[in-house]
Amino acid sequence: MIIVSGKIFVDPEGRDGYLAGCVEVVELARKSPGCLDFALSADLVDPARINVYERWETDEQLAAFRGSGPSDDQGAAIRDAEVSRYRISAVEPA
Results as ranks from 00 to 15, higher is better:
Gly6Trp: 13
Gly6Lys: 05
Lys7Val: 12
Phe9His: 02
Phe9Glu: 03
Val10Phe: 00
Val10His: 04
Val10Asp: 02
Asp11Trp: 14
Asp11Lys: 14
Pro12Glu: 06
Glu13Cys: 12
Glu13Met: 15
Gly14Ala: 13
Gly14Gln: 05
Gly14Tyr: 04
Arg15Gln: 13
Asp16Asn: 03
Gly17Asn: 07
Tyr18Gln: 09
Tyr18Ala: 06
Tyr18Phe: 13
Ala20Asp: 13
Ala20Arg: 12
Ala20Lys: 08
Ala20Phe: 03
Gly21Glu: 00
Cys22Asp: 11
Val23Glu: 04
Val23Thr: 11
Val23Lys: 08
Glu24Lys: 08
Val25Gly: 15
Val25Ala: 12
Val26Met: 04
Val26Asp: 10
Glu27Ala: 14
Leu28Thr: 11
Leu28Ile: 04
Ala29Gly: 02
Ala29Cys: 02
Ala29Asp: 09
Lys31Asp: 15
Ser32Arg: 00
Ser32Met: 00
Ser32Glu: 00
Ser32Cys: 04
Pro33Asn: 07
Pro33Ser: 02
Gly34Trp: 13
Gly34Lys: 03
Gly34Thr: 06
Cys35Val: 02
Cys35Trp: 10
Cys35Gly: 04
Cys35Lys: 10
Leu36Phe: 06
Leu36Thr: 14
Ala39Glu: 10
Leu40Asp: 05
Ser41Tyr: 15
Ser41Ala: 15
Leu44Tyr: 14
Leu44Val: 11
Val45Gln: 00
Val45Tyr: 10
Pro47Ala: 03
Pro47Phe: 02
Ala48Val: 03
Ala48His: 02
Arg49His: 07
Arg49Ile: 14
Ile50Trp: 04
Ile50Cys: 01
Asn51Asp: 08
Val52Cys: 02
Val52Phe: 03
Tyr53Arg: 08
Tyr53Trp: 09
Glu54Cys: 00
Arg55His: 13
Trp56Glu: 06
Glu57Tyr: 06
Thr58Met: 04
Asp59Tyr: 11
Asp59Phe: 10
Glu60Met: 07
Gln61Met: 08
Gln61Pro: 00
Ala63Lys: 08
Ala63Ser: 04
Phe65Ile: 00
Phe65Asn: 03
Arg66Glu: 09
Arg66Thr: 10
Gly67Val: 02
Gly67Gln: 12
Ser68Met: 12
Gly69Pro: 07
Gly69Met: 05
Gly69Tyr: 07
Pro70Trp: 11
Pro70Leu: 14
Pro70Gly: 10
Ser71Gln: 15
Asp72Arg: 15
Asp72Lys: 07
Asp73Gln: 13
Asp73Cys: 14
Gln74Arg: 13
Gly75Tyr: 01
Ala76Asp: 02
Ala76Ser: 06
Ala77Ser: 10
Ala77Thr: 04
Ile78Met: 05
